[in-house]
């Protein structure tokens, strides 16, 4: 369970409050208008933004003071998820060893995870030689190999077309989601949430609401979400 206790974030004139309990074994979507603080919340969870007040904990262990690399968390950003000068295999291998010196067993693990995401035989290429969808798969492969219990997705598939994006979300659902793992994804598209999220957290008006089951939420949207969805359609 990922908990945010009395979490308060501030950046310039922007502020966000969050008291959340996000249980493992679920895919949770953060949805809300742009500028509401979805990505900021993710940044704080990953350790890139120090909270003004409050605590972040995983299974009762306080993470607030840990550096990003030391947290049990993997994150995929909107872009720059791969080093362009390293091969795909090297990029993925960084999840195991941040020195690039892999043993033969580890190399086999890298090859296996590339197989799992459908990149068989492409380990020797550099990211620039891959399509957008393949790059996303490579980044997912690294997260998969890192095998950390929390995975944060900050709209990493936003630049893909609708078909490819759906494919990636399904891949997340299939490969990343599991009984021991929590996946938190930022999205501004309700269809993304409906496609793979078990729960939805509405982030609006400087506040992150408690998670609600996806179907129930969209059947009876609270005012903040209704406003957002309405504006989107109109």
């Amino acid at each position: 369970m990922l908990t945010c206790d009395g979490l308060r974030l501030a950046q310039d004139d922007f502020a966000l409050r969050a008291d959340l309990r996000l249980p493992k074994g679920r895919v949770t979507a953060l949805i809300g208008p742009s500028g509401a603080g979805k990505s900021t919340l993710l940044s704080a969870l990953a350790g890139f933004l120090a909270p003004v007040a409050g605590h972040i904990a995983w299974d009762g262990v306080d993470l607030t003071d840990l550096s990003p690399g030391a947290r049990p968390i993997s994150i995929l950003f909107q872009d720059n998820n791969l080093f362009p000068h390293l091969t795909v295999a090297q990029n993925v291998g960084l999840a195991l060893r941040p020195t690039l010196r892999l043993s033969n067993t580890e190399k086999a693990q890298v090859a296996a995870v590339l197989d799992a995401v459908g990149l068989t035989g492409l380990g020797g290429r550099k990211p620039g030689a891959l399509s957008g969808g393949q790059q996303s798969r490579a980044a997912l492969a690294r997260v998969l190999l890192g095998d950390r219990p929390v995975v944060l997705l900050d709209e990493p598939f936003a630049a893909l077309g609708p078909g490819l994006k759906a494919e990636m979300l399904d891949l997340v659902r299939l490969k990343l989601a599991g009984p021991e793992r929590l996946v938190v994804m930022v999205t501004h598209d309700p269809d993304d949430a409906k496609r793979i999220a078990d729960d939805v957290v509405v982030v609006a008006d400087g506040h992150a609401a408690a998670p609600v089951a996806t179907a129930a939420l969209f059947d009876h949207p609270p005012q903040a979400l209704a406003d957002y969805l309405g504006k989107r359609v109109g």
Binding site: G47, P68, I73, S74, L86, L94, P98, T99
Partner: peptide, 20 residues
């Protein structure tokens, strides 16, 4: 561009310098 990725992967010091 890559500071956050490096931090998330735990790349620091010499490894960050050499790899990134």
């Amino acid at each position: 561009d890559f500071g956050r990725l490096g931090a998330a992967l735990g790349l620091r010091g010499w490894a960050w310098l050499r790899i990134a």
